[in-house]
Design a protein around this nucleic acid. Sequence first.
DNA 1: ATACAACCGGAGTAATTCGCTCCGCAAGTT
DNA 2: AACTTGCGGAGCGAATTACTCCGGTTGTAT
Lengths: 222, 222
Amino acid sequence: MTEPKRRGPRQAEAERNDRALLRAARQVLADDGAHATVAAIAAAAGVGIGSLYRRYRTKEELFQRLAELSLDSWNQAAERGLAEDDPWEGLASFIVACVEFGQGSLAPIAGTIKVTKEMQAKSDHSDELLAALVARAHEARVLRPDVTVVDISLLIEQFGRSPALDQLRKQGREDLLEAAADAHRRVLAIAVDGLRACHPRPLPGGPPTDRLFTERWTHETG
Amino acid sequence: MTEPKRRGPRQAEAERNDRALLRAARQVLADDGAHATVAAIAAAAGVGIGSLYRRYRTKEELFQRLAELSLDSWNQAAERGLAEDDPWEGLASFIVACVEFGQGSLAPIAGTIKVTKEMQAKSDHSDELLAALVARAHEARVLRPDVTVVDISLLIEQFGRSPALDQLRKQGREDLLEAAADAHRRVLAIAVDGLRACHPRPLPGGPPTDRLFTERWTHETG
DNA sequence: ATACAACCGGAGTAATTCGCTCCGCAAGTT
DNA sequence: AACTTGCGGAGCGAATTACTCCGGTTGTAT
């Protein structure tokens, strides 16, 4: 067993709280961007501030953990995509999955995340997976030929947050949240269709540099 | 003459400053979202805070003016689009123009804007113009049939800000700004191509309500 | 030159906000 | 009942914010 022993009587509650905190952090980050507060995160999780700081020594440590989990989710989505038979469906479902679990909520805090060696390894792996998804779609001639992995990554990031959904949530208009989420998925579907190989005109500008991604995170030397 | 007399010796500088302030406000809003500070706006305009407050009594008054000007830009872009002969190019160039001048920078402060009667009239007009653009594209069978005006509006809003560009600007990476802007235009071109009538599969979900737009602004009774 | 008017810049202020600590209390276990 | 473990949130110091106020600067008139 990996964790053979419960160390305290209220360990189960602690684990539930931890999951709730991570869920809430993603949510609040999506809503409020870079200036999400710990009070808001704790409140959204239905947990006291004290409980947050017992598990994470600082706000940054929580965000760090969130970034790591997001990388895992990204990789799982990519592997599910590769497992699909149809190359197009594999790529499209990967994109939708990444947008769905809120990959884009990390963008506002990307500059504050320290990339550990472990995360770097996961990131390299995710690059390979995405490259494989794109290569397979190219070979099947279902993806327009001048689309690169950077284009896909930027598309996912672009749809990671929904301005309309953010504002409605901040205004407490619960009645429109569902409609806004549906509409967001609709617009994403439009954009994904724009990736199909049925468009004769080449895309404007040259292929984008991957420096747009590699140089936006601060790396650890140790 | 509408403005026959200069009232003071430094009037020209004052007008330059006003234009710089509005430009800077759009920029900073795009970068920092809802918590853009007056100090940042004044600094970006190369102007003292005092000069900002001589022209606008409060921060909100500046944002209000910005919203009004944005509506004008929107309408001008729509009229240029209608003036084009090709229905598709008209619609596409309208979308690109709206994204380009930073229409989306207003999304984070949409909830704080008071819509005056004058603005309401301009807004109604813009609705008609966009409806005309979409109807013309539908009649020419160049726009996929289940796309609505709300879809177009949401698409414009979605691309109004670029997460990558925002972060790079905040990090001061001037060397990558151009590349990021190019990449952003590329991804937008992909999404716009997704609107073309060459995609057989219908979009997911029903047509979105326009309540997603009408109910997000606070209206004035007077 | 001198006096004056118009406008500029930004240090200072009061109020708010934020990350984080600390401690009294409740829930299990024995 | 005694004890252990984890919970919640009031409160603190530091940082940030919108806005005011006034000494300085620029351009015009005499």
